[in-house]
């Protein structure tokens, strides 16, 4: 099952179990979404539960917040993460703060789905990584699944969560990643990282599509005699501090990989945790391999390739760190 099919299966399964779940967004109904994630859901659950919305992200999220407070479990879709910014005010100012500001009288059980990331020739407005903006905000959770299995389990947990969750799907993973996904329902708790590969020479801490790339790099390095551990964060808020420290203490060398640009990224937060809590276990400077600090993903294929993190780039950075 592909990453995309896992998400669709998860949506269908949750909608079958819970009639309060409604989906709306641009082209999610008749067309089944631009990536076809919601394909077939309108036919199955009807126009009242899978709704095509106007092209207005602020309204999509704003309406969803009201519906959530009113008792539904809305799962709005933002067609591309790049377009989530018109809804920023709704997410940060309303959804994230609602429980706190109403002293627990209201809460917002809302899952906002949006594809992120590049590498699909999407250029400036269809390639951005936006997770770090939201990871900064107390009151929301941010899931960034890296495998089909995790995508379905995290989605179930996000829907079950009583507070707003941003669910960021990597669009390059939709059809490129395949994996075993059980038919029965399962939940992967938000805030639990997972060691995707055990190793002893260094740790790669990453998430989303880069988990797969890191695993491929680890495979390459295995043949060179370098043993790489890969930790998949799975959610970037909350961060699983215990597992981050555990892997760092185990190997003493940490390479943080994300496609999002470097400055103020998730890697900075992970680095700070390590510096604060694991200094005396570090055998090498913490290293980050990130997207460059340029305004956006270029359209030109060579430039896009230069921007993107690849398994080869990860292997090279890990190799250097292992040699240190």
């Amino acid at each position: 099952m592909t990453y995309l099919e896992a998400i669709r299966a998860g949506l269908r399964q949750e909608m079958q179990l819970d009639p309060r779940i409604v989906i709306w967004g641009e082209d999610v109904g008749v067309r089944g979404g631009v990536f076809r994630v919601t394909e077939g859901l309108q036919q199955e659950f009807g126009e009242d539960r899978v709704i095509d919305s106007p092209l207005a992200e602020g309204a999509i999220v704003g309406v969803a917040i009201g519906a959530a407070i009113g008792g539904l479990r809305p799962i709005p879709e933002i067609q591309f993460g790049d377009f989530i910014f018109p809804a920023m005010n709704q997410i940060v100012e309303e959804a994230a703060r609602m429980r706190y500001r109403s002293n627990n009288d209201f809460h917002v059980p809302l899952v906002i789905r949006a594809p992120i990331g590049g590498g699909i020739h999407g250029a400036l407005y269809h390639s951005q990584s936006v997770e770090a903006f939201f990871a900064h905000v107390p009151g929301v959770k941010v899931a960034v699944p890296g495998t089909p299995y995790d995508a379905k389990g995290l989605l179930a947990a996000a829907i079950a969560d009583e507070d707003p969750v941003l669910f960021f799907e990597h669009k390059a993973a939709y059809r490129s990643l395949r994996g075993e996904v059980p038919e029965e329902r399962y939940l992967i708790p938000l805030g639990q990282a997972e060691v995707k590969r055990e190793g002893k020479d260094l740790s790669i801490i990453t998430y989303s599509l880069m988990v797969n790339y890191a695993l491929r790099a680890a495979e390459t390095l295995q043949q060179e005699g370098i043993s790489v551990e890969v930790l998949d964060l799975r959610t970037v808020r909350p961060l699983d501090q215990a597992r981050i420290l555990e892997t760092a203490k185990k190997t003493g060398k940490v390479l943080i990989v994300h496609e999002d640009n470097r400055t103020g990224g998730i890697g900075a937060e992970v680095s700070a945790i390590l510096a604060e809590e694991a200094l005396f276990y570090l055998d090498a400077p913490i290293r980050r391999l990130c997207g460059p600090d340029v305004p956006a993903m270029p359209y030109s294929p060579p430039l896009e390739h230069a921007f993107m993190i690849t398994p080869e780039k990860i292997a090279q950075a890990a190799r250097e760190l292992a040699r240190f």
Partner: peptide
């Protein structure tokens, strides 16, 4: 103190 990297120890090594 030897060559540069000989005298510099990571926190893990020192601990």
């Amino acid at each position: 103190p030897g060559p540069t990297e000989r005298g510099r120890y990571s926190p893990a090594v020192r601990r």
